[in-house]
Write a protein that binds this DNA or RNA. Structure first.
Lengths: 146, 146
DNA sequence: CCAAAACCCCATAGAATAAATAGGATAATC
DNA sequence: GATTATCCTATTTATTCTATGGGGTTTTGG
């Protein structure tokens, strides 16, 4: 399970991705996406620090997308908020931690199994860009109308 | 990330799967797999209640496999200890929970994306049987020797 | 029968993490 | 300079995870 923070972040990005040129107020995103305002504030700040968003303070300010939405993918967002994508700490590159229970990691079939799941998952999440999600949502909506 | 409890359970099952007819003492599994004894006790009890293991009390007793190791897969074990496999509560069948943030779940592209990841993951974990892991470990060990 | 061996079971402590909120500081506009 | 809006730190609250403690029950074997 990813954290709510991460899920909120993705929803916010998708929301903004629908109008990539617009400037958004925290309050508006909060209401549109049903995210607690103060919580969202911290999330947007994280996204800004990560370089995905830019912001402008004061009256007439707000948050805006800094990168192309085709360039931001879910793997990156999940890693930013929740760290490793792998199901076990010994099956990840960037957040690797050894496990005490198996003597030899190289021959541990449990690790091997979860490593394969991880690789497949990362591959899928990398292909899920914000732009892709925006498009997909539009498609799902028109499909439903019929 | 799966819980340590779940990871321990898998390791214990793989250990037992190497000698599927044997009766195992908690203490021996604990030492062989580096799992805190008391913690393991609770885990084995859970596995017993789930029908995967049997046990015999008293002197000469112990835990033993009740089902064919080719029949026990990681999806089942993970679900037993950690619940849903999906990364978001709205993308799971058995542990489904709606999310407040999206008005229409059917057209939510975030859910759609994680649903696909879930399906792929479940498929992979279902193919990872305890017997399969035991075999794999043997293979990895001989490969390393060379 | 009884003592040792081994699982059974409940309860809880301790730590870490997640989720949310509080309260003010800073910046920009009009 | 009042208003709007982001920026920042800290704290609270709740929950879950991990681990352990301390008996209770069953079975065997002498």
């Amino acid at each position: 399970m990813i954290s709510k923070k991460c899920k909120y972040a993705i929803h916010a990005l998708v929301h903004m991705g629908k109008n990539p040129e617009e400037k958004f107020l925290i309050k508006d995103i909060s209401e549109a996406c049903n995210i607690p305002k103060k919580f969202l504030e911290a999330i947007l700040l994280d996204l800004k620090r990560a370089g995905m968003l830019g912001s402008k303070q004061g009256k007439g300010g707000g948050y805006f997308l800094r990168r192309d939405t085709e360039d931001i993918n879910l793997a990156e967002v999940v890693r930013l908020f929740d760290g490793a994508i792998a199901a076990v700490p010994c099956a990840t590159h960037k957040f690797y931690e050894p496990c005490q229970e198996c003597e030899d990691e190289e021959t541990c079939s449990v690790r091997d199994a979860f490593l394969q799941v991880r690789n497949a998952t990362v591959e899928m999440l990398k292909n899920d860009t914000i732009a892709g999600l925006v498009k997909k949502e539009a498609k799902l909506k028109t499909r439903k109308k019929r």
